[in-house]
Every structure is written in C-alpha cells, then in structure tokens.
Design a protein around this nucleic acid. Structure first.
Length: 196
DNA sequence: CCGCCGATCTTT
DNA sequence: AAGATCGGCGGG
C-alpha cells in the first residue's frame, strides 16, 4: 500500500472537521507508530475547554501555528499529550490524539510502557500513546507533513472507518455538552471513559 | 468491574 | 486550586 504524508490542505479546516478525518491515519516516530482510532477536537477563544481559550502563551503557542504542526503539552505533572494542529496559521485549533492500535516496533513500545500488561493498552489513552511512541515536549512544533520530520502523520491506504461514534470530551468540565470526541465504533484501542 | 487516591508540577 | 492522566489498590 502506498504511504503518503497527510497533505496540509486536509488539515486546513476546523478541528471538528479535521478530527474524524484523522481516524485510521498513522502517526509515526522512527520505527514506532500508531493507527489512530480516537480523537478530540479543541478550538480557540470560542472553546472554554481549550488551552487556547484565554490567550497566546508560551505553552499553547503551537496551537496557533499552521496546519500539520504537532502540539505537545505536559499535564498533571508527569504526562505528555499530542495534538495535530489544524486550521489556518494564526488561528488556534487542534485535535488531541487519544488512542490507537500500536504498529511497528512493539518491543520498543513495551519497554517504554512497562505498566501495559497487554499490547492493547500500549497506546490506549493520550498520555500512554505519547509514552509508547517516545513523544515528549522536545517534539512540540514539529511539522507532521514534512517527510523528513522525526514525527509524521501518514495515510497508508487503510480504508476509512465504517462507523464513527461521537460523544463528550473526556476529563473536561467546561463545554461538556459539545460532542467533540470521535472514535471508531467497537475499536478495542479506544480509551476507557473515566468519571470526571 | 467499579471507585478512590496519590503522584507530580505547571498554570491560573 | 485545578488540570485535555495514569496506575495501584480495595471492595463488591
């Protein structure tokens, strides 16, 4: 199957439009990769749950970058989470990668995720996904559409998901009524819903 | 399976 | 003081 980096135009849309498009695509870091099956859309000033809700800061600056930029942030004092920035340059918006099927060098991923007792759990959750792939703050701002980039987002010809489900975003209290979480129905790599 | 709690630190 | 989380533990 031919593999091509995702085109910037495909990501130059609103987070809610881009989010379902990312389901089934592959995020790769060297020999490690994950086929995305669960994402969440985050906006800018219009979205109270977004890191970019208030103003541009040192932390969220990547959210204002051009489509295809990687936004990596640090949460809860110990975890990294990865987003695909979308929309035009200067507009804040991104899609959080919450889960997927581990691909490629599973041995390296298992070493990076010692708490995962089964491979299904390697990338099941946004911080788990980053840990498995070895993605941390040093990758913030990387260009996912550039084939020479250390982390790339590719379309490997996998068929589009048959059924996509939607629901409220996990772990957010603000704007909880927005069904901006998208996942492939019945996919075992979708993260668990936890009480917030 | 479900719920609670602590870890650990940046941002508000 | 809360946060776009996770893993371990205890109870049912």
């Amino acid at each position: 199957m031919p593999e091509r980096p995702l085109g910037r135009p495909e990501l130059d849309a609103t987070p809610v439009e881009v989010a379902p498009r990312l389901l089934g695509t592959v995020l790769r870091h060297d020999d490690r990769a994950v086929r995305i099956c669960e994402v969440e859309a985050y906006g800018g000033a219009d979205d109270p749950a977004s890191h970019a809700h208030r103003r541009r800061t040192d932390r969220n600056r990547s959210m204002f970058a051009g489509p295809g930029t990687l936004y990596v942030y640090f949460v809860y004092g110990m975890h990294w989470c990865a987003n695909v920035v979308c929309g035009p340059d200067g507009t804040a918006g991104a899609v959080l990668l919450r889960g997927g099927q581990p691909l490629g060098d599973l041995d390296t991923m298992r070493l990076a995720r010692p708490a995962a007792r089964v491979d299904r759990d390697l990338c099941r959750g946004p911080a788990r996904l980053c840990a498995a792939l070895g993605i941390d703050g040093t990758f913030d701002g990387a260009d996912l559409c550039d084939p020479s980039s250390p982390v790339v987002l590719v379309d490997d010809g996998w068929p589009p998901p048959q059924a996509v489900a939607t629901g409220p975003r996990i772990g957010v209290r603000r704007a909880a009524e927005r069904p901006w979480r998208f996942w492939i129905s019945d996919d075992p790599h979708v993260s668990a819903v936890r009480p917030s």
